[in-house]
């Protein structure tokens, strides 16, 4: 469905993503995992064409969405949905208008039809009857489910999830994880999930991509990842604070800093 080719993104001097080739399979759930700063959010934004790569391509079926014009991109976007980390509901609109937003924008459907669709989508995420609430009146978990319903409104072929469980209590996180798994299976849509929640990630994935410092260090089915012998993968899966991925981010040796400071003071 989506295939990236030597995808690279630099922010100033920092290399966020280094010549990465990723393949997102159709009708499957691909989970991109990695620690903070591993480049996973950058990768997701590039896949959704919210950002332009420094070099490389993102092939969405026949189009390189990193380089198509805006008109074509917007056409392709009607086949995509996205659930953002902080839900990104439009805070001037209530739940109903948020979910109906893409339908109002891009379809000529009758309001009664839209009402039915919105009810269906809200039912799918278990929030039917909450249409009149404003985003500010929703809990984090509810907002995320509304965002999910909104992403599903246009019946997309592919849905992107940016950290779907972060900032949620365990129950809400479980609900959202279950929703992603169930809906992906039921609607046979393609989903791409970015998360650092190892447990949730492995439980819903058909395919896992593990990133570290802008590179893929492991890729495969969840079981392959669990049984990986790569030290870095094991450290991440088990959540050990130190290992091949160092605890300290400092570039200089601690002892040098201490001694250097002492020398300066005495001199």
């Amino acid at each position: 469905m989506i295939r990236t080719e030597k995808l690279t993104r630099r922010f100033g001097d920092a290399l966020a993503l280094d010549s990465t080739d990723v393949h997102i399979r159709e009708h499957a759930t691909t989970v991109i995992m990695g620690g903070s700063g591993s480049g996973k959010t950058t990768l997701l934004r590039l896949l959704a064409a919210l950002d332009t790569p420094t070099s490389g391509s993102v092939w969405f079926d026949g189009d390189d969405i990193a380089h198509v014009n805006r008109k074509r991109l917007y056409e392709l976007r009607s086949r995509m949905g996205m659930v953002f980390q902080y839900s990104a509901l439009l805070n001037s609109l209530n739940v109903y208008d948020n979910v109906a937003f893409p339908l109002h924008e891009h379809t000529e459907l009758d309001e009664s039809v839209i009402r039915t669709i919105v009810s269906m989508k809200l039912e799918q995420v278990g929030l039917r009857g909450f249409e009149h609430l404003m985003p500010s009146e929703l809990s984090g978990g509810m907002a995320k489910r509304v965002a999910f319903a909104r992403a599903l409104a246009m019946d997309p072929e592919i849905v992107f999830f940016d950290e779907p469980t972060s900032g949620l209590d365990p129950i809400s996180a479980g609900v959202v994880t279950k929703l992603i798994r169930d809906l992906t299976q039921k609607t046979r849509m393609t989903s791409v999930v970015v998360t650092h929640d190892v447990h949730a990630g492995l439980s819903i994935a058909d395919h896992v991509v593990l990133l570290w410092q802008g590179r893929i260090i492991a890729e495969g089915a969840p079981d392959d990842i669990r049984q990986s012998t790569d030290e870095r993968v094991c450290q991440f899966i088990e959540g050990r604070p130190d290992g091949p991925i160092p605890f300290s981010s400092s570039k200089t040796r601690y002892i040098d800093d201490l001694l250097g400071g002492a020398v300066e003071r005495s001199g």
Binding site: L50, Y74, F84, S87, A88, L90, F101, E105, H106, F160
Partner: peptide, 14 residues
């Protein structure tokens, strides 16, 4: 900050 601008982009609204 709340990614609403990105959300609009994703819903093909400039």
């Amino acid at each position: 900050v709340t990614e609403q601008l990105d959300a609009l982009q994703m819903m093909a609204v400039n």
